[in-house]
């Protein structure tokens, strides 16, 4: 029941944002509000088990705040550094690529999805494949450092810095 309500409210909020300034009842017209409510109730009834898997811990506002801090702070900074690094490699053509395996030891699907997307958008790394039993990631790295190749599986602090700790704080 809680998952149905949360999904409905989420879908309705997206609908409201998409149809802003369509009328004069606050910002929306009456027809838009009615049809949006009907469609979001139908969608919430259909997709309530897809949107929330088994537990409701992402409803906690503290996690949203941590997620916002993560996106604005370390993530955007890492992304800027990544793009300057890729710019350097494009202009000089100096690359040293390879595929390495890291094991960040995350347990949930949401956490591993967030980590894989963060890795793809940050310094010279691109997630290629995943081992679904142990949640190990295979990462294509454009500039492999020598000291990271010493032991198996590779230490993740060379590949993605402190991102797994942040993801663990947000999603687990």
């Amino acid at each position: 029941m809680i998952s149905f309500l949360a999904t409905t409210v989420f879908v309705f909020l997206i609908y409201l944002v998409l149809t802003t300034a369509s009328g004069d009842l606050f910002l929306w017209s009456r027809e838009e509000l009615i049809i949006g409510a009907v469609f979001s109730i139908i969608l919430g009834a259909i997709t309530r088990n897809m949107f929330f898997k088994r537990n409701l811990r992402m409803l906690n506002p503290k996690r949203w705040f941590l997620f916002f801090v993560y996106v604005v702070g370390p993530f955007f900074w890492g992304m800027a550094k990544a793009n300057i690094d890729v710019a350097y490699r494009v202009i000089t053509g100096r690359i040293n690529p390879g595929i390495v395996k890291i094991s960040p030891k995350l347990k949930t699907d949401l956490g591993i999805t967030m980590l894989a997307n963060s890795i793809t958008l940050t310094p010279g790394t691109l997630s290629v494949d995943i081992d679904e039993k142990t949640n190990d990631l295979y990462v294509h790295w454009i500039n492999v450092k020598k000291e990271a190749l010493e032991k198996m599986p590779r230490d993740y602090k060379y590949v993605c810095g402190k991102f797994p700790d942040w993801v663990r704080r947000v999603a687990e």
Binding site: I95, N96, P97, G98, I99, V100, D129, H140, L149
Partner: peptide, 25 residues
């Protein structure tokens, strides 16, 4: 997400990374 899907498809269809120093996968 689409980058991840493309790289996985490329690796499973047998494209090797050029000049790679290591390939754990």
């Amino acid at each position: 997400t689409s980058a991840h899907a493309m790289s996985r498809a490329a690796h499973r269809s047998g494209v090797k990374p050029a000049k790679a120093v290591t390939d754990d996968l």
